[in-house]
């Protein structure tokens, strides 16, 4: 019973945050709304018995990625977004029906297959089981992600550094 109420509260907060992300003209408000969504999602992950992922989710998304977003928004001092010029202003008139169709497609698939199955109390999301899977069966993908992170880091440093050289020229 408590889990059900919590699910709908968290789901409501997540959707509210998501709507505010795309509706706010001020990027700072968008970023803070996204943080709200991420928190609500962490709560939902806990309801899905994925405790480890929920905590990592907060640490990675709320703790690092969103701080980076806020940092860039404040660094560039981006002001409130102006309305698009010309016909682009009416993009939403086409976009909204398309998105509704997309949602309908996704939802019908879901309802056909999984209308009744409830959440199971399981041990799958524990640190132990994820650790075992990550370092035995999936050790190669895990190592590849570390290469990906190094490449991303080098790329970010290069992009930031190149600009300094052009200033000097």
């Amino acid at each position: 019973m408590v889990a059900t109420i919590l699910f709908y509260v968290f789901a409501g907060l997540a959707i509210l945050g998501a709507v505010m992300v795309i509706a706010n003209r001020n990027p700072i408000y968008s970023a803070l709304s996204l943080i709200l969504t991420l928190f609500a999602l962490a709560g939902i992950y806990v309801l899905l018995m994925a405790h480890f992922i929920a905590i990592v989710h907060i640490a990675v998304y709320a703790g690092a990625i969103m701080v980076l977003f806020l940092f860039v928004i404040m660094l560039l001092n981006i002001r409130i977004e102006e309305k698009a010029p010309g016909a682009f202003r009416y993009m939403i008139l086409i976009a909204a029906p398309m998105v509704v169709i997309l949602f309908y497609e996704l939802a019908t698939v879901v309802f056909k297959a999984f209308s009744r199955a409830p959440v199971k109390q399981t041990n799958v999301g524990s640190v132990e089981s994820i650790g075992n899977a990550l370092f035995s069966q999936y050790v190669l993908p895990f190592e590849v992600t570390s290469v990906l992170l190094i490449v991303a880091m080098a790329g970010a440093v290069y992009l930031a550094k190149r600009r300094l050289n052009t200033v000097k020229e």
Binding site: I55, A59, L70
Partner: peptide
């Protein structure tokens, strides 16, 4: 919590939002 120390890392990193 069985993820205790991770919880601390996660929550401690949120302290920055108040300042920002």
């Amino acid at each position: 919590l069985d993820v205790g120390i991770l919880y601390i890392v996660a929550i401690a990193s949120l302290g920055v939002y108040g300042l920002v």
